[in-house]
Design a protein around this nucleic acid. Sequence first.
RNA 1: GGAGAGGUGGCGGAGUGGUCGAUCGCGCCGGUCUCGAAAACCGGAGUGGGUGCAAGCCCACCGUGGGUUCGAAUCCCACCCUCUCCGCCA
Length: 430
Amino acid sequence: MHDIRAIRENPAAFDAALSRRGLQGLSAQVLALDEDRRGKILAAETATAEQNRASKEAGAAKGRGDEAEFERLRAEVAVKKAAIQRLTEEAAAEDQALRDLLMGIPNLPLDVVPDGKDETQNVEIHRWGTPRSFDFTPKEHFDIEGVIPGMDFATAAKLSGSRFVVLKGAVTRVHRALAQLMLDTHVDDHGLSETWTPVLVKEDAMYGTNQLPKFAEDSYQTTNGWWLIPTAEVTLTNSVAGEILDEANLPIRMAGHSQCFRSEAGSSGKDTTGMLRQHQFEKVEMVTICTPETALSEHTRMTKCAEAILEKLGLPYRTIVLCTGDMGFGAQKTHDLEVWLPGQQKYREISSVSTCGSFQARRMNARFRPAGGGKPDYVATLNGSGLAVGRCLIAVLENGQEADGSVTLPAALHPYLGGKTKIAADGHLA
RNA sequence: GGAGAGGUGGCGGAGUGGUCGAUCGCGCCGGUCUCGAAAACCGGAGUGGGUGCAAGCCCACCGUGGGUUCGAAUCCCACCCUCUCCGCCA
């Protein structure tokens, strides 16, 4: 959510930043509403102050036994009361209207973010590894002979429908190994604290990390009102909602492994085969809570944490900065990591690392007390995948495939596979 | 699912109709003392909003929303949340 004071102080800058995102200026609308709101608040508060005064005087009159004066004041209060109720309701309505409007406006891009209208104008900033040259035509993951026995879409469809998968045998083991490797790397090498969270959350949490109110159709809700998290960003970030943290305890860097649930509304027809886009998938998520000044350096750090996983696995990737037109709702700046998929002959997104500045913190009311004393200020929040486990599985399988239908697995995984090094063409770990 | 307890400032914990935005303790900040520290003592400090050049003034906030009353942290109603015990269960 945006700081109304900042918009008041510099409406032109606000509109200019929105236009970089391809949106029309909203400051006029916001400020008109704000002015209205403040007028109502002033009226309501002035009336209340008068009532309070009369009420106090009534008490004093009663105390000295002046019944006539007491009755007069009591009548005065009674008259004011109705007006106050109306004014207060109007003020509250205006306040809510402003809040609703602000809640629906996306975060503003940082100056360093490149301008652009869509994903074609993202900017590559880093490339690692060389795509392997195959002496045969590499297949997509679901067509690799050794993978087929372990990736069962038919049974998943019977159980749950499309965009689900049942994993079996060696493929499951590799999937599990990947999650372990990611967590161990983040904890042991990167110093993140491992955190396990619920996947069902209250509505407030979904507002805090901006899934609500705008993107309700992207997530699932249970009949009793809980929401299924689309990412552990929701739980990890909201863990500090409503808190006033000590600056000495910042940054807080977390890593959590969870199931994620997405309706994938609006993506029908995209990536329908294979397990690239599922309603339920696993992800290791990183979240950092820090001071606003350190947000950008933490963003760089978090990006490196994600890149390290791909490098350990020997998977070629590139890192891009999303342009203003392609960034998500809550982001100020986003790096996407794209891994090479030989079956598609394309780099595909496997991680997205964003800093949100104080945008989410303001929604969550998450603050810190500065070390030197002084007023609490909003924290900055960052989130990033480290990595999407299912997509990483795909990358490992496709990049490691051999002509005979077997899959050579990265050395970093061997310790997690009981020393085994490949999936044989018959689907067994070998 | 059943029964009970409870939600107050950074934390703990008083307060059961009127100078209570709230006693007190811890923690925090400043000072005295000290070579320095600790202790002791003195002083300061809630959050948000409105208004004002400012000092300041005003409003709201004791889980949330209503109600009673001239007046509510305190009384009434509803809801939410947390905890304990019992039952069931991975």
